[in-house]
Structures are given as structure tokens and as C-alpha cells.
Simulated assay, not measured.
Amino acid sequence: MSFNATLAAGATSLYDTLYGNTDLASLNWLERQWVAWYIWIGNPVIATGLASFLLHEIVYFGRCIPWIIIDAIPYFRKWKLQPAKVPTAQEQWECTKQVLFSHFTIELPAIWLFHPLAEAIGMSTYQVPLPSWQTMLPQIAFCFIFEDFFHFVAHQALHTGPLYKHIHKIHHKYSAPFGLAAEYAHPAEVFILGTGTIAGPLLYCYFMRDLHIFTVYVWITLRLFQAIDAHSGYDFPWSLQHILPFWSGAEHHDFHHMAFTNNFSTSFRWWDRIFGTDDKYREYRARVAAMKAKSASPKEFIEAEKRLMEEVEREGLVAEAEAESGGKRKSS
């Protein structure tokens, strides 16, 4: 988008209002595009709301596409955590419809209302220059840590009685999740768990009065990548949890869907470890490691692991029934 062309289209008065004191020559390419977007749309409120929603949709479905392709290629099955359960095209389409419904009924209004509220407590939107990575890094770290703990608490609440039966049960439709299923959930759950994603930036902005929506966009992009990858169903040797041991990743969250219990956090493993809500998961990983050591051949190990998965899933169905009926069960 050409900034000069935008001005030539008759937006000079808006430019004077928003950027009259800005030295364009000092801006980098991205910052000039940022200015051009706001001038082109012609209304800062609409420009920010539209950019926010488009970012969410493009990042979400853009990140899902590689996982859809991977699911369609048998070569990648050796890295799939539950290789016998590959989503069908029909399942992916049904999932997509529910996700789009939530996006337009819950997330669109929330996204559109977020920035006026955040601006009211000090967040910048159209302003340039954009924040440096040194400024953004601690802000994004705060958002990750806040959201992870919020999700840890709220997710466990969603596994109890009526909240599970009437809300969270939809998300557990797939015992072997896939990328698109990251936001496959009841609209109420989208609102509840989504609160953790937007409350972090709001709290930071309220107390620090120093936050730019560009930082929020980086945070949302990383959060969507985390959620989709955690639901991908694949554990590659280069997956992030093998580099950062405290990162959860697909290997951690896939167990939650398979066994129904344990592993309630999103990004990190520490809350589950501290509160003991990863006991069954750690027992499962230990049994897998023991079977691998004892198996005489890869085929024998695959068969043994398959039987163990079936056992864990049966136990998970029992735990799910107890949660749905309001019964009490440790770590559920």
C-alpha cells in the first residue's frame, strides 16, 4: 500500500489529525504500512477492529492448513501421537463450521470491543513508531504467564458437573485432537477461556499504561500458534517441548484429550507439576518408556503402546462419565 497514493486519495486531513507531528522519514517499512492502513480505512476505530479480526482469522486458519496437509500424508504417521486416529475430511469440515460460528458470534464482538476498552486505559493503536522487541518481550511474557495460570484454573472448573456436561464436553468430542479443533468449543467456553487471553493485556495496560496493540497482535499470533500446535496431534523431534522442557506442546495436551484427566495448562507444564495434576500423565510416559526398552522390535513396541492407549482411553471414558454426572475424582 502506497502512503503517497493514500494521501492523494483525499485523506490529508486525517493524516494531519493522526500523524501531523510524525516524521515519516524516520519510520521503517512496517511502520509506514501501519500509517497507510489507518489513513486508507479512514476511521481509526474501524481500522483497528478490522485489522484485529482479520489477523485472528488469517493466523488461525493459516496455521491450521499445514496440519491439514500433514494429516493427509501417511509419511507423517510415525510422529502422530495417536496414529490410528486421523481426522476425516468430514470431521474437519464439521469442526470448521463450529469454529467459524464461534468466531463470528463470540470472538468478533469481543475483538471489536477490546481495543476501545484498552484505549480507554492507555493502549496505543494507530500511533507510530511501533514498540521495539525489547519493550514487547516482557509484556508478551506477562501475557503468556497470566493466560497459562488463568487457563489452568478455568479449565479444571470446566471439568466439573454442569460446566462439563453443558459446555466443555463439546471440546472433548475428539479424543485425538487436530489443529482445527483448537477452538472447537461451546461459545460459552470460547468466552470463558478467551478471557484469559485478553485479560492479560488489559491488566498490563491498566497498571503500566504502556502497551501498543502491535504487541497484542504479536501475543495473539503466538497464542494461536501455541493452541493449534498443542492440538495438532504430532510430536516431532524438533517440537518446542524438546528444546524447552517446561513447554507443554502437543505431547502434553494430547494426553489430556486421550485420558480426559491431567494436564490442564496451556503453554507451560509447571502448574500441573506443582499441583500434581500430571500424575497419570507421568505414569503413562514411564510405562511407554519401559515398554520401549523391553520390546524386542519396533512392531512389538507399537502393538504394546496401542494396547496401553486403549487402556488409558477406557479409563478416560469412566472419568468423563463421573465428571459429567458431578462425581468426584482425583485430578479430574
Rank of each mutant, 00 (worst) to 15 (best):
P131T: 00
F146A: 02
S175M: 13
L180I: 10
T135L: 09
K169G: 10
F150Q: 07
F150H: 13
G179F: 03
C143N: 08
A176V: 04
L130Q: 03
K169M: 12
A141C: 12
K173Q: 13
H172P: 08
F146G: 00
A154F: 09
K165L: 06
H166Y: 15
H151V: 10
Y164R: 04
A157N: 09
T160I: 14
Q127R: 07
H151I: 10
A157V: 12
A176E: 01
F149C: 09
I140D: 00
H168Q: 09
H172N: 11
E147A: 08
P129R: 09
P131K: 03
K169S: 14
F144D: 04
Q134E: 14
Q156I: 10
P131A: 01
T160S: 11
F150T: 04
L158S: 02
H172K: 10
I140Q: 02
F152R: 03
A157C: 14
Q139G: 00
T160E: 12
G161E: 06
H159W: 01
D148F: 00
F152P: 00
P138W: 09
F149T: 10
C143S: 13
F146H: 04
F142P: 00
F149N: 02
Y174G: 02
H155Q: 02
W133T: 13
G161D: 12
P129L: 09
S132V: 02
F144G: 07
L163N: 07
M136Q: 09
A154R: 01
K165D: 10
A141L: 15
H172L: 11
S175A: 13
P138F: 09
P131Y: 02
M136Y: 04
I140P: 00
V128S: 02
I145T: 08
T135I: 13
F146R: 01
G161C: 06
C143F: 12
P138N: 09
C143V: 01
G161F: 08
M136I: 12
P129K: 11
P131I: 01
I145C: 11
G179R: 02
F149I: 14
H172V: 07
A154K: 03
P131S: 03
Q127W: 00
V128F: 03
K165T: 11
F146D: 01
G179P: 01
S175I: 14
S132C: 04
A154L: 11
D148Y: 01
P129H: 10
K165E: 10
